[in-house]
Amino acid sequence: MIWDILIAVALVIGAVFTLVGSYGLVKIDRPMSRLHAPTKASTLGVGSLLLASILDAYSSGDGSLHEILVMAFLFVTAPISAHFMAKAHIHRGTVAAAPPTLESGETWACLDKDREEQPADTSA
């Protein structure tokens, strides 16, 4: 019984967060702010669904942990794809306000024309 409640709660939380992420994707009208909702909420939502799956496997007797792999992979890759999309936004100028300029004469990496010639990008 207690397992049922835990699984149901994890499922509902995951579903709600997934829905909130996609709702934010549709609702927010500024391109850069739009990145926030899906990268965070959807990732946690799917994480919670995977937690429900682990609990379900344990309640039915045969323990299963390989959902942790999917979870860890999603949590490691979500920031990287968000970072890439933010760079592409700045590069194409589709941001509501330009990023601030720095006092020390440095520029941001994706606006730096010399750096774009170099093949390796260690910042990603």
Binding site: G14, A15, T18, G21, S22, P38, S42, T43, G45, V46, L49, L50, A52, S53, E67, V70, L74
Partner: peptide, 8 residues
């Protein structure tokens, strides 16, 4: 990401 959730 939503598709992964659906499969799970």
């Amino acid at each position: 990401v939503n598709g992964i959730g659906m499969i799970v």
